[in-house]
Design a protein around this nucleic acid. Structure first.
Lengths: 137, 137
DNA sequence: TTAAACTTTGCAATAGTGTTGCACTAACTT
DNA sequence: AAGTTAGTGCAACACTATTGCAAAGTTTAA
């Protein structure tokens, strides 16, 4: 994805496309998987952790990325689909490979609908499947 | 649950019932919900974090408790059912109340079966539903 | 075009969680 | 009772997430 597209994307979500933000977004989308703060930090040694952190938070608040806690000990971030608002209908399964540690959005697998007992409300959900991915098998 | 029962329980899972372990188990089971290391630490000020930590690990290794990462930032632990071996068939949904921070095992809600794409294996899963519990509503 | 106002970034510091090594003590074995 | 093993407490540490503050950059408005 080229920078121009990214800038348009960010603007369309009301986020000012600074150099850092564009870089973070590009890295995320190009990687094709969910990345942690530490992953991102490694990919561009020069940039401050807190800057990346705040970029991710901003993205998250504006439905540009969603976060996944895959149980690896660090939260990962993945780009949302075009018209995602991070509500129940956008939720999908995430797959965590216990061999390589990679986390993938399974956008083709929506989180199944669960009927909760009386009195519980349903705002959000995380469904992480652990196993081994084709690459590692 | 009284101490005698607990000791039998632990022994039946090949874990020696020390005073600390019995206490940790009792606290967990009596609370009726999932507790974090910090939660447990607070409940008995005198006991070392690492002792509780190791008790939990031992329990986990022996299918006495299972852990849940509910996204709150700390892993929680809940007692398993009688004949649980923490495999796919024992997995159930966990409910995290975003208001009170309590995490509950929904043992009556097994994790639905998901058909993964070709090449992925399925070892384990976490399904956390976030919302508001009846107590807080 | 310059000053004021606001936003973003980098740096440093901090809190919290999870984890380990080591020494001491308790418990079990023979 | 002596030796071996298992459990506990203490201290230390790594790592993740997060914040306050000051400097730098950008936008607005006179």
């Amino acid at each position: 994805m080229d920078n121009n597209e990214i800038e348009k994307k960010l603007e369309s979500k009301n986020v000012k496309p600074t150099a850092m933000r564009t870089l973070v977004y590009k890295t995320l989308t190009d990687s094709g998987k969910a990345l942690s703060l530490a992953d991102l930090e490694q990919r561009f040694e020069k940039v401050e952790r807190s800057t990346i952190f705040r970029a991710l938070k901003t993205f998250e608040d504006n439905f540009i990325v969603h976060s996944v806690d895959d149980g690896s000990g660090s939260v990962k971030y993945a780009v949302c689909d075009e018209d995602c608002t991070c509500n129940i209908h956008d939720l999908h399964v995430h797959f965590y490979c216990t061999r390589c540690g990679r986390t993938r959005c399974m956008k083709e697998l929506p989180i199944p609908n669960i009927k909760l007992p009386e009195g519980y409300t349903y705002d959000n959900a995380q469904f992480i499947i652990n196993g081994v991915c084709p690459r590692c098998d």
